[in-house]
């Protein structure tokens, strides 16, 4: 049976791992190599690295850094941040990333999803969607690292992106991000109902129960989190144990007590 993945998300800014709250006020957490080694040892299911600093300068996540981190990992590694061209995606995959994560570039030019899927295979293409609640109810996609409103419904965009060739959707709630107050279950439900590709739910995990709820009620294929792993004594394996106890199949780990 396919297992529900538990995925730490590392946000990189100026070469250090950061964790903002609601996409603002970032705190420096650790150096990326140290944290990647810890997660490899703890046998996480997968790892996501997003460079949230480089996009402002029109650059993409550094391929040399990706290579040095990928060399430490024997689990799948997805990387994103400032990716705007197919050439950059190919370069990152060649340097050891299994998947590339695209957000603003995909929204502005959905054709790039189809082009990338044709060359790299759709399983390599993760479309990241950042969304927030609207005052009138409903949800709205934001691009440019949460700064630019688009007026587009995330479920509609997720459906279009997967039709274009996205292999997975990484869905982040801007409202819940870094708050550790729980996932936005309605947002996740709306996107999982609209798509048939796997959806990775991110943003707001603060307790072990939150993960269970987003899988059970949100129908997420995988759960992702940053703050809870950085700032609380919660580990991915504790999340997996909670999921297992709730009857959600997860991959067993060889490492006890981590």
């Amino acid at each position: 049976m396919l297992k529900t993945r538990v995925i730490p998300v590392l946000l990189l800014k100026d070469g250090a791992i950061n964790k903002p709250v609601q996409f603002r006020r970032a705190r420096t957490v650790a150096n990326p190599m140290a944290i990647v080694r810890v997660f490899e040892t703890r046998q996480v299911d997968e790892l996501v690295l997003l460079d949230i600093g480089c996009a402002e300068f029109g650059e993409a996540v550094n391929a040399d850094l990706v290579r040095s981190l990928a060399d430490e990992l024997s689990v799948p590694f997805a990387v994103g941040g400032g990716i705007r061209s197919l050439a950059t995606m190919v370069d990152l995959i060649k340097n050891g990333a299994e998947k590339v994560v695209i957000n603003t570039a995909a929204f502005e030019n959905p054709e790039i999803i189809a082009e990338a899927a044709a060359v790299l295979g759709r399983q390599c293409i993760v479309v990241s969607i950042d969304a927030a609640r609207r005052p009138d109810g409903g949800f709205e996609v934001f691009t440019h690292n949460g700064k630019q409103a688009t007026g587009v419904d995330p479920a509609k965009w997720a459906k279009q992106a997967s039709a274009m060739g996205a292999g997975e959707i990484l869905l982040t709630s801007i409202d819940q991000d870094g708050t550790m107050e729980g996932f936005d279950l309605q947002l996740v439900q709306s996107v999982t109902a609209a798509t048939s590709v796997p959806v990775i739910a991110c943003g707001g995990a603060g307790s072990l129960d939150d993960f269970v709820h987003v899988v059970r009620q949100g129908r997420a294929s995988a759960v992702a989190a940053g703050s809870i792993f950085h700032f609380r004594r919660t580990t991915p394996n504790m999340v997996k144990e909670a999921l297992r106890n709730a009857g959600v199949p997860v991959r067993a780990s060889y490492v006890r007590g981590t």
Partner: peptide
């Protein structure tokens, strides 16, 4: 079910070739 089939899934024990011998705690592969 969703496609692609992405994630860790177990290789079934029944009929598995000798190349799968010696797996310890689980039989999950990516």
């Amino acid at each position: 079910l969703r496609l692609p089939h992405i994630g860790w899934n177990e290789v079934l024990d029944e009929g598995a070739d000798a190349i799968f011998s010696g797996l310890e705690l689980n039989r999950d592969f990516y």
